[in-house]
């Protein structure tokens, strides 16, 4: 009887150690396996050339549409996402500053890696280019010395991710403008530079611009 209960204690201890291992493995695996995370859900916006609105602020009697999947959205902030897949080429996000404050943040699976607000805009324009390390080196090599590019170039840690656009409507009367400002941002896949060896492919993909 005593041996049996000792064995039982050992088995329980092993079970608890296993539980710890399973717990750690499960917590680490959730972000990788999740199909409901923001990167996976944003993927439907990959083919669009403007952000997909994921939270449009309520205007007048129109409540926020139910497709909003942000768990606790800010009722005064319109949110849109542009998913990117850098395998298709660098992603260019262009925003024009307006009366409402706007912010852009680039996220990958691990989290945000870059964020900027419209206060960083140069002459009312904010141009973000998200690229891989190889695309960045290529862009640097192709730079015209006499006409340096004014783009903000950000090297992404992953090929897949999304850029989230937030526009704050300080007053209820600014809410339609905030929803429109999200749509006014453009997210396009940059075709490779014209004189690059992939020029033909880029011209073929011209429809995406």
């Amino acid at each position: 009887m005593r041996i049996v209960s000792l064995r039982f204690v050992y088995a329980t201890l092993i079970g608890l150690v296993l539980a710890g291992i399973v717990h750690i493995a499960a917590v680490l695996a959730i972000p990788i396996l999740s199909e409901k995370d923001a990167v996976s859900r944003a993927r439907t916006s990959e083919s669009l050339d403007h952000p997909q609105p994921i939270y449009t602020v309520a205007t007048g009697d129109d409540p926020s549409p139910p497709e909003a999947w942000l768990p606790i959205p800010d009722p005064a902030v319109a949110v849109g996402v542009c998913a990117y897949d850098l395998a298709d080429g660098p992603m260019r996000v262009s925003a024009r500053t307006g009366a409402l404050s706007l912010s852009l943040a680039a996220h990958a699976r691990r989290g945000a890696f870059y964020a900027v607000t419209d206060q960083a805009a140069v002459r009312g324009a904010l141009d973000l280019v998200i690229l891989t390390r190889a695309q960045y080196d290529e862009a640097l090599a192709d730079d015209d010395e006499n006409d340096p590019s004014r783009d903000v170039r950000i090297v992404a840690p992953d090929t897949r991710g999304f850029v989230v656009v937030r526009v704050i409507a300080g007053l209820p009367s600014q809410r339609p403008a905030a929803n429109a400002a999200i749509q006014a941002v453009s997210c396009t896949t940059d075709s490779a530079t014209d004189d690059a060896p992939t020029g033909k492919d880029a011209a073929g993909k011209g429809g995406g611009r």
Binding site: K36, D37, L70, V79, V81, S103, A105, H107, A112, T117
Partner: peptide
Amino acid sequence: SAANADPYTRAVNARRGEIPLAVGE
């Protein structure tokens, strides 16, 4: 939303589809 957030925070974000505010935002 930081890239070096703890694994629990990342798991919670992944399960809820949350896009938290980045430090610059």
